[in-house]
């Protein structure tokens, strides 16, 4: 809406200077006290499966999001429908892919430059390699020191895969040929529930406690962030461009923002089903265009927010 055009604008010319000042003050006050002002995050669009035909299915419990900056694509793991969905960077639905109905509960994924998908399939307990060109699908069961791994989250960094093992709560690093490389954990911790890999190291969110560990690439604990404000069920983590820590509270449906000393900055969103409300959020990430994306699992969508 352009506020400088139309009748309202012309009528406004008659307002006295004092009235205008008072109005501006009140407007400023209203903006200052509203939660949106504290956060300045605005809903941009939702990634949702369109219901075009009678047999079209909405997304059911989507769990993972991958963004390909080169192709300007969002990819969503539509877990309970056993398929992957792709969207443009504007949020327009492109297509879905189910590997000939062979996918079983895809939970997280990445897409390599050469057109190879790596998918965590919960139903198979595997890391599955899908070559889109040759239409070849290979499910690989992972082990670590001879013990079965239960892959949960997946990230690619450098020439390695970083995989969160749900059983041990550790982040396991494999080469692209799935050879065992390195493992990250913290002595006596409760296991990670989410993680992010960055140039400055690995950021892991501890189960239930909300404690964030910043580990160096050599595995040393460089910083332990204990959030100053308690949360119901911290479940997902993102590190913002300015170094702020974004934690998703799965039960409260909120995004809680802390600085690296653990001081609470602000909180936004909440539990529910209408736009801007979350139900069992599963993952949070910044896309390459500075937008904050939250995988809103219970509402079957990915909510994308911009400033």
């Amino acid at each position: 809406m352009n506020w400088h055009k139309g009748k309202e604008s012309r009528r406004g010319r008659g307002v006295s200077g004092l009235g205008l000042a008072a109005s501006l003050f009140l407007l400023g006050l209203a903006v200052a006290v509203s939660p949106a002002a504290a956060t300045s995050w605005q809903w941009q669009f939702s990634l949702k499966a369109p219901i075009l035909k009678k047999d079209s299915k909405p997304m059911l419990m989507p769990a993972g999001l991958f963004v390909d900056p080169a192709r300007k694509r969002y990819y969503v793991a539509d877990t309970e429908n056993n398929r992957l969905l792709s969207f443009t960077d504007k949020g327009e639905f492109l297509t879905f892919f189910d590997a000939g109905k062979r996918l079983q509960a895809p939970y997280d994924m990445i897409r390599e430059a050469g057109g190879v998908l790596w998918v965590v399939e919960k139903g198979r307990n595997s890391l599955t390699r899908i070559d889109l060109k040759s239409r070849k699908l290979e499910s690989k069961s992972l082990t670590w020191d001879g013990v079965d791994v239960i892959p949960h989250r997946l990230a690619e960094y450098g020439d390695a895969f970083y995989i969160l093992d749900k059983k041990s709560g550790r982040i396991l690093v494999y080469t692209k040929k799935l050879a065992q490389k390195n493992a990250y954990g913290v002595k006596g911790f409760r296991g990670f529930v989410d993680f992010k890999v960055r140039k400055d190291g690995i950021w892991g969110l501890e189960r239930l406690t909300g404690t964030v560990f910043h580990l160096g690439h050599d595995g040393r604990v460089m910083r332990t962030i204990k959030p100053a404000r308690s949360m119901s069920f911290p479940y997902a983590l993102e590190i913002g461009p300015a170094g702020l820590v974004y934690l998703v509270d799965r039960h409260a449906g909120t995004v809680n923002v802390f600085d690296q000393s653990g001081a609470f900055k602000y909180r936004f969103l909440g539990a529910g089903h209408v736009r801007g409300r979350l139900s069992y959020p599963e993952e949070i990430m910044f896309d390459p265009w500075g937008r904050l994306c939250v995988v809103d699992s219970g509402n079957g969508r990915v909510e994308v927010f911009g400033r």
């Binding site: 419990m61 769990a63 877990t79 309970e80 509960a105 939970y107 919960k122 139903g123 239960i150 749900k166 059983k167 041990s168 709560g169 550790r170 954990g185 911790f189 409760r190 296991g191 189960r207």
Partner: peptide
């Protein structure tokens, strides 16, 4: 299953 209850390292 897509969500299991493995909760302790």
């Amino acid at each position: 299953a897509s969500h299991n209850h493995l909760v302790d390292p």
